[in-house]
Amino acid sequence: MLQIANVSFAYDEAPVLADISFEVGKGEHLSIIGESGCGKSTLLKIVYGLLHINVGEVFWNETRVMGPLYSLVPGEPYMKYLSQDFDLMPFTTVRENVSQYLSVFDLEEMERRTQELLKMIEMEAFANTKVKNLSGGQQQRVALARVLAQEPEILLLDEPFSHIDNFRKNGLRRKLFAYLKKQGITCLTATHDYNDVLPFADRVIVLKDQHIIADEPTTALYQNPKSLYIASLFGEANEIPVNIVKSYADTKRRIIVYAHEFKVSQTSGLSVTVKKCYPMGSHFLVEGCSEDQTIYFNSSLHLDSEAEVFLNISLETINKRLV
């Protein structure tokens, strides 16, 4: 089990993290999300032992992560960290970058494992290409295969698909996270992309203003976000007074509603004036205005600017979202 206890950290007196505590079980996949600059990458570096902390402790089972002041080579051997700069060997081939880190002495087994990893990252055709001749996205895939070759007990991923085009990104996500589950590898992923989170993470931690503001199972957090900030990390969302969507409600409490949860009607509901309509492929994202509040909602049809429509929300959504 990974244990982070009461960790605080600052860069040159500028606080980044304050009193951070959580645990991650063996084989669990934890996603760390939050706005840019909230400390996601810093937290991974602390867990790996790249940054020294004066306050707090990090343990993997009974072993304490000591940090750079106590290690000639920062980082822990049972843990691997895929950073946003890939740290590859540019003048050697893709195959060599991967196979060099395999703890296998039998040549046939080494070749089998190398091919397995190259297939996972869909780079078999580039096995003999020097890394310096690859694109940024291809290099990121090689870096991913290289950390997997080392068979870590814990894998730390910092924006692991940020350079990879959408054509390959979705398939690579499915292959990678299925592989980690099969191998029982504990995984921490820092990301700004909810597509890295919703289908794959067992649990989510949300960082804001130096603190953890949410730590919940992924589906539960998505379905019942406690703030607009949390909901917005999963997609377009709104915070509105409940009494403007249900006129009979005698409360001024507010409700979080995702754009896709509004149902458009031509006859009754919350009156909204359309301002802009953005094509999204399978639907339109509509920016509207109601009682001087901007509201975002989805529509299956294009809506003209200044058109009046009505929005409805299910009673189930209202009951579980009151904040």
Rank of each mutant, 00 (worst) to 15 (best):
M1S: 15
N6Y: 03
V7Y: 14
V16N: 08
L17P: 12
A18L: 10
E23H: 13
G27C: 04
E28I: 09
S31D: 02
I33Y: 10
G39W: 15
G39V: 09
L50G: 11
L50T: 12
L51M: 09
G56R: 11
G56K: 11
G56H: 05
W60M: 04
W60N: 01
N61P: 00
N61S: 05
V65S: 05
G67L: 06
Y70A: 13
P74Y: 10
E76V: 12
E76I: 07
Y78V: 01
Y81A: 02
Q84E: 09
D87F: 04
M89F: 15
P90K: 12
T92N: 08
T92V: 14
E96V: 00
E96Y: 00
M110E: 15
E111P: 09
R112F: 14
R113D: 10
L117W: 10
L117V: 14
M120H: 11
M120N: 12
E122K: 15
E124C: 11
T129Q: 08
V131Y: 10
N133M: 09
S135T: 14
G136V: 05
Q138C: 06
Q139I: 03
Q140E: 11
V147Y: 03
V147I: 12
L148F: 13
L148K: 13
E151A: 13
E151H: 15
L155W: 02
F161E: 05
S162H: 11
H163C: 01
F167I: 08
K169A: 08
N170Q: 13
G171K: 14
K175G: 08
K175T: 12
K181R: 15
T186K: 00
T189F: 02
D193S: 10
D196S: 00
D196W: 00
V197P: 04
L198C: 00
P199C: 07
F200V: 00
R203L: 04
R203H: 04
I205V: 10
V206Q: 06
D209R: 12
D209W: 06
H211I: 04
I212R: 01
I213V: 14
D215Q: 14
T218R: 12
T219G: 06
L221I: 02
Q223D: 13
K226Y: 00
K226E: 07
K226I: 01
S227M: 03
S227Q: 01
Y229V: 07
F234H: 09
E239F: 01
I240C: 07
P241I: 05
V242Y: 02
I244D: 00
S247Y: 01
Y248L: 03
Y248N: 12
Y248K: 13
D250A: 12
R253K: 15
I255H: 00
V257N: 11
H260C: 02
K263S: 11
K263V: 11
V264Y: 07
S265R: 10
S265K: 06
L270T: 02
S271K: 15
K276G: 04
K276V: 04
C277E: 09
Y278P: 02
Y278M: 06
Y278N: 09
P279H: 08
G281I: 08
H283K: 09
E291G: 10
Q293K: 08
Q293F: 01
F297Q: 02
S299V: 01
S300L: 09
D304H: 14
S305R: 12
F310D: 07
N312I: 03
T317D: 03
N319A: 10
R321I: 01
L322W: 05
